[in-house]
Amino acid sequence: MDNVVEKLKSGELIPFIGLGVFEHTKAKDGSDLPYDSDSMILALNNGRAMSPRLMYEYSRAAMSLEQRKGREFIVQMTNHIYASKEYDLPFTYEYLKTIQPKYMIDTNVDDSGCKVYEDVPHFMITGVSRITADYDRFLIYKYDPKTKEYTRVEKEELDDSLPILFKPMGCMKPEMNFIISDADFVDWLTEAMGGYALPPFLKDYKKDKSYLFLGVDFSRDTFRMVAHETTLGLDTGLVVTPKEELTKKENKFVTTHNLEVLQQDCDTFLKAL
């Protein structure tokens, strides 16, 4: 893919951020932050591994913990992973902060994506699940850099007059809403397939866009489905991954969605730009 920087700046190319961008990020106390499914499970379970069946994917492990210890435990534990540590912004977010893309999808649940836009007004959309008020599985906020606060707004107010940060798996702020366990993903994806996981404006805005996938692991069904639903109508894209070989399912996803694969570490790729 040519002219990546220009396309990011123009909004033609949309960054899609996954957990892998944390791979080289350490907290100030020297500990690692989760950067893949296994390390997220260890973080959720106080550093202890779980059974092979539960270690398959962190959403499955989170569901087991939620069933044993309650919903509030898994919400607080997810927040604790990031809120209890001080850490520098991963390089991917640092780089994107210099560009402040018109639209960015960030599937991580911490506030690093918010810091990309912390000095400019912007909209933030966060995913929610298992609510009974209506079918919509999102909340929309508007950010004021003067007060450093997010204010909830109605979906009719969303437009592209400001940058848009979409966090489909939720965020630790301004409210703790996380799509983290199997039940969350099932609910969110079910409504996504019905058209209720994205605000009406985004459904049209995202059409015919290209995507830059950074730190995204497509080896598990869950995130392939999330990527499919949030980029429906895409034109093409680039997957940056350090993997030497993709699985059969990953290759099928890449081919079906007209994506190009670049075997490279995300930080190395961005620094070369």
Rank of each mutant, 00 (worst) to 15 (best):
N3Q: 15
K7F: 01
L13G: 03
P15Q: 13
F16V: 01
I17V: 12
I17Q: 00
F22M: 12
H24L: 05
D32V: 03
P34C: 07
Y35W: 14
A43R: 05
L44F: 13
G47Y: 14
L54A: 09
Y56I: 10
Y58S: 02
Y58E: 02
A61Q: 03
G70S: 05
R71T: 14
Q76M: 15
N79T: 06
I81T: 06
A83L: 12
D88W: 03
L89Y: 08
F91T: 05
F91Q: 01
E94A: 08
L96G: 11
K97M: 11
T98Q: 13
I99F: 08
P101Y: 10
K102Y: 11
N108I: 11
N108H: 10
G113E: 04
G113W: 12
G113Q: 05
E118I: 12
D119R: 09
P121E: 11
H122Y: 12
H122F: 08
H122E: 14
S129E: 04
D136R: 15
Y143V: 02
P145G: 06
K146R: 10
K148S: 14
K155T: 12
E156W: 14
S161K: 05
P168L: 10
M172Q: 08
M176L: 13
S181H: 07
F185M: 05
E191F: 08
A192C: 15
A192L: 10
M193V: 05
G194V: 01
K203V: 10
K203F: 09
D204M: 05
K206M: 15
K206E: 07
S210D: 06
Y211I: 03
L212T: 08
L214V: 09
V216A: 00
R220W: 06
V226R: 03
L232V: 11
D235V: 02
V240Y: 07
P242K: 01
E244R: 06
T247L: 11
E250T: 00
N258R: 11
L262I: 01
D265T: 01
T268I: 15
